[in-house]
Design a protein around this nucleic acid. Structure first.
Lengths: 200, 200
DNA sequence: TAAGAATTTGACCAACTGGTCAAACTAACG
DNA sequence: CGTTAGTTTGACCAGTTGGTCAAATTCTTA
C-alpha cells in the first residue's frame, strides 16, 4: 500500500530531512525555524510545507528514523558470541556512529535533555525492553563466569555516555585536543576500559 | 568598585537567574522566551529587562557562574595526595553535582551541543589549560608508577561523560531504571571502573 | 513624613514565526 | 502536442518575539 515516491519527491523529502537534521541538531525543535530549514535545503518555505505537513512532522520523521537506527545494533548483539567481543563490537559500533553521524547524536541528545516530550513512550517501551533483554544477557554471561559481574545497566550507560560524548561534546573535545582526529585514541581507551571491566 | 545590591535587587537577580536556568536548560537559548522566564520568576517582562539588559545577558550570567563552578573542582585536585583517591574524589564530586544540579549540567550541555558559540574562547583558553595541567599531573603519576598508564585526556572525558550522563539523560535513565534513586549504584560502578583503570 | 531614588507596569512596536492559498509553472505520458 | 498530475511560489495572515518607554507605584532615608 506504500505509494511510490516520484523522483522529485524522493529528492526533496531527503533534502528537507537533511536540512532539518542540521538545523534541529543545533538549535533544538523550538529554537529552529522553517526559514532556516528552507535556506539550508534550498527550497522555499511553502514548498517545504508541501512535502511535510508541519515543522513538527519533519522533526518527528527524523526522530523515528533515528530510534530505529539506534536500537538495531543492540538487537544485533549475539547471545551465542563471545561476550567480551560482542560488547566490544557494540561499543565500537556506537563510537563509529558518533564519528560518522554526530548530528543524529546531537539531535537525540537535545530531545532527551529537553525531557523527551515526543518519545517518552518509546523510552519506556521499546528502548526499555531492548535494554532489559541486554541486561539479562549480560547477567547470564556473568553467572556463567564468561565475564566479570558488573551492573549491566550502568555498563550500558557508560558505553552510551562515552561514545556519544565524542559527538555531542565535539567542540569541547576539539578545544582540548585540537582538530586532529581523536577517534582512534578514543576507541583504544574504550576497548581498554571495557576489557578491564569485563575480564574476570 | 562592586556596587552593593539592594535587598530587592538581590532577590530579583536571583529569582531571574533561577527562572532562567530552569527555562534555558530545557529549551536552549533560542528556544526560550522572556515570557517563560517572566512567568517562572513571577516578574513582568519589562521588570526582568530592568534587571538584565537583554535575554542574552541572563543567559551569559548563568554561563559565567557555571564555568567557575565547573573548573574549580579540577583545580582542587591535590598533586600531593594519593593519585587514585584524588581522581576518585573528583569523579564523585562531579557525580554529586549531576545529582544536585542537573539543570546546570543540561544548560552547559545544550550550549556545547549548539557549538558553544558564546564560550568557545573559554573552552580553548581556561578549560584547555586546566585540563592540560591535570593531564600532565596524571602522566606524572603514571611515570612514577603510582597509577597505571592511561591516556589522561580520554580518562577525563570518560569521567565527564559518565557523570554528566546521569543529569543530561535523566529521563532516559529513569525510563530504564524506574524512578528510584540510582546515584548510589552509579557511584559504585564509577568507582569500580576507575579503580580497575588506574590500579597498576 | 516628604523628597528623591528605586522599582514596577501597561501599552506599544517592529521583526519574526508557522502556516495558508490561489495562481503560476513544470514534468510526465499517452 | 495537449492534458493532467505534480510542483513551486508570492502575497498574505494571525500570533509571538525581544525590547522600549513614559507613567505610576513603592522604598529608603534624611
Amino acid at each position: 500500500m506504500k505509494k511510490t515516491e516520484t523522483r522529485i519527491q524522493k529528492k526533496n523529502h531527503s533534502a528537507i530531512k537533511s536540512a532539518g537534521l542540521k538545523v534541529f541538531a543545533q538549535f533544538g525543535f523550538r529554537g529552529s525555524t522553517l526559514d532556516q530549514i528552507a535556506a539550508e535545503s534550498g527550497l522555499s518555505k511553502p514548498n517545504i510545507l508541501y512535502y511535510f505537513s508541519s515543522k513538527e512532522a519533519i522533526y518527528e520523521a527524523l526522530l523515528a528514523q533515528l530510534l530505529t537506527d539506534w536500537l538495531q545494533p543492540v538487537r544485533d548483539i549475539d547471545p551465542a558470541g563471545d561476550p567480551v567481543e560482542e560488547i566490544l563490537k557494540y561499543a565500537k559500533h556506537k563510537l563509529k556512529m558518533s564519528r560518522l553521524y554526530p548530528r543524529e547524536s546531537r539531535l537525540y541528545a537535545t530531545e532527551i535533555i529537553q525531557g523527551a516530550p515526543r518519545i517518552k513512550s518509546v523510552l519506556t517501551g521499546e528502548l526499555r525492553d531492548v535494554v532489559e533483554n541486554l541486561a539479562l544477557l549480560i547477567n547470564h554471561w556473568a553467572d556463567s563466569g564468561l565475564i566479570r559481574a558488573v551492573d549491566p545497566y550502568h555498563l550500558i550507560f557508560s558505553i552510551w555516555a562515552m561514545t556519544q560524548h565524542y559527538a555531542d561534546f565535539d567542540v569541547q573535545v576539539k578545544a582540548i585536543l585540537g582538530e586532529k582526529d581523536h577517534f582512534e585514541d578514543a576507541e583504544h581507551y574504550l576497548e581498554d576500559m571495557l576489557r578491564r571491566m569485563l575480564t574476570v
